[in-house]
């Protein structure tokens, strides 16, 4: 992919304008426009970072510095699904590493690697804010899969291979019984 071929569509440019309108400076839109770019290309490799910089009329070095600071931006191409397995604190003590190692065994790759078919990338990540539902993982910066077991992981992989992503799971407080009941109906 050469830099010339990269461009935002009119719809994306409109979205970028809406993002810019939230802030008094273009610079403030950097993180959000990197997200727009990552959604489009699946990564923010250097040429995509430059597209973001040029679109926002910012120094390319600035966008490069920002992209490299935040871990959710993929600076390299990844598999179709990125499985971010939390192994931090609560997940560590509740079997996060077992889940990670199980995934590694199942997919035949190590954390940080991508399967040969380009389907899965596994990453070991820091706390994702789902400590009460440990162990857990996040699929490609999106949905959370909570309270994992090896069986649940196998099912998840199977579904993902079929293109079926898990659905958002509402974790209702145990004190909210009425809500729970409503949700289960």
């Amino acid at each position: 992919m050469t830099e010339q071929e990269l461009a935002f569509t009119q719809d994306e440019l409109d979205e970028i304008e809406r993002i810019k309108a939230k802030f008094p400076t273009n610079k403030a839109a950097t993180l959000r426009v990197l997200w727009v770019a990552q959604e489009k290309y699946g990564h923010v490799k250097p040429e995509v970072q430059n597209l973001v910089a040029d679109t926002l009329d910012l120094p390319r070095s600035h966008v490069h510095g920002v992209a490299s600071f935040y871990t959710q931006y993929y600076k390299e191409e990844t598999g179709t699904y990125v499985l971010d397995v939390c192994t931090c604190l609560s997940c560590q003590v509740c079997g996060g590493y077992d889940i990670l190692h199980h995934l590694e065994d199942e997919l035949g790759i190590k954390a940080g690697e991508t399967t040969e078919d380009g389907m899965f990338t596994i990453q070991e990540v820091e706390c994702l804010g789902a400590c009460g539902y440990a162990p857990m993982l996040q699929v490609t910066n999106g949905v959370y899969a909570n309270n994992l077991t090896k069986e649940k992981v196998d099912k998840l992989i199977e579904n993902l291979r079929k293109g079926k992503k898990p659905e958002f799971e509402s974790m209702v407080m145990r004190q909210n019984e009425k809500r729970k009941k409503e949700l289960s109906q």
């Binding site: 939230k22 993180l31 959000r32 997200w35 600071f69 871990t71 959710q72 820091e126 706390c127």
Partner: peptide
């Protein structure tokens, strides 16, 4: 009221790190 979001950095929970991130910079 404008909603915005980060991209993976614990330090952006530190209040001035968050301000830098809101300004579109490294946190």
């Amino acid at each position: 009221m404008y909603t915005t979001y980060g991209a993976g950095a614990y330090i952006c929970g530190e209040e001035t790190g968050m301000l830098e991130s809101l300004e579109g910079k490294r946190g």
